[in-house]
Simulated scan of single mutants.
Amino acid sequence: MENVRDTFKEVAAAILPVTIVVIVLQLVFIRVPFEAVIQFLVGVLFVSLGFFLFLIGVNAGLLPIGEMIGRRLPSTKKAGFIIATGFLLGLVVTVAEPDVRVLAKQIEEVSAGAVSAGILIFSVSLGLAIFVALAMIRTIFRIPLHYMLIGGYTLVFLLSFFVPESFISISFDSGGVTTGPMAVPFILALGIGVASVLRTEDDSSGEKFGLIGLASIGPILAVMVLGVLFR
């Protein structure tokens, strides 16, 4: 019950400020049609309900199972299996990420179908999956995070010289939308679970984090490569 109450407060704190600002703008400046305001309020109601149920599901299911999988994987003592599992989970949760689907749909409309939503979703998901796998490699072999971040963003910088300008902006937006409400809880819990088992209590705290920052490089590179192919 405590969890439900805290989740309700969290949703209210996230949704109410946006609702109040839009209503104030409507009353003072914008004056959009009344039907549009009613549609907005109905949308706020559905978003609030959906957000509330989603957070309940995350706390009750996604986070515990993600961390449990992460803790059980090292017991296999097979680095390849851990890396492959990270890749597969990164792929499927990104395909299910609603933010990625919204971006892909908008890009398909703007490009008049030249870049289909399906191709973009697959590219972004593949890019993130590869870098989740690299994050597992980093955790297993104790590779410093800054080495991989510098290497990843160096590739982004070099590749930007060969990519159409429109795809550069799309690629960075793709990196942002992958850190959405579906991918982050599950991937972060997975990384924390693996790091907790593979590290001692003294040195594991730093290894548990940085996974999302590293993984978000993958979609940027993937969309840039897609831009080179569409050039």
Rank of each mutant, 00 (worst) to 15 (best):
E2A: 06
R5H: 04
E10F: 09
I15H: 00
I15L: 07
V18F: 12
V21Y: 02
I23T: 08
V24E: 02
V28D: 00
F29C: 02
I30D: 02
R31C: 03
P33D: 12
F34Y: 10
E35C: 00
V44A: 14
F51W: 12
L55E: 14
I56A: 09
G57N: 12
N59L: 13
A60C: 08
L62A: 15
L63E: 15
I69E: 08
R71V: 08
P74H: 11
S75F: 14
K78Q: 15
A79M: 06
F81K: 09
V93Q: 01
V95T: 05
V95E: 01
P98K: 10
D99S: 14
V102Q: 02
L103T: 09
L103I: 11
V110I: 15
V115F: 09
S116E: 13
V124R: 02
I130Q: 00
V132T: 15
V132D: 15
V132Q: 14
A133I: 11
I137K: 13
F141D: 05
P144D: 07
H146F: 12
G151T: 06
G152V: 02
L155H: 01
S160D: 01
F162Q: 12
V163A: 06
P164A: 04
I168T: 06
I170C: 01
G175N: 08
G176M: 09
G176A: 13
G180C: 06
P181H: 05
A183W: 00
P185V: 04
P185S: 07
F186Y: 11
L190P: 04
V194N: 05
V194L: 04
A195G: 03
V197K: 11
V197C: 03
V197P: 01
D203M: 07
D203T: 13
S205A: 12
S205E: 07
G206Q: 07
K208D: 06
L211N: 03
L214K: 00
L214P: 00
I217R: 00
G218S: 08
P219T: 02
I220C: 08
A222C: 04
V223W: 06
V223P: 00
V228I: 13
L229T: 09
L229S: 10
R231C: 05
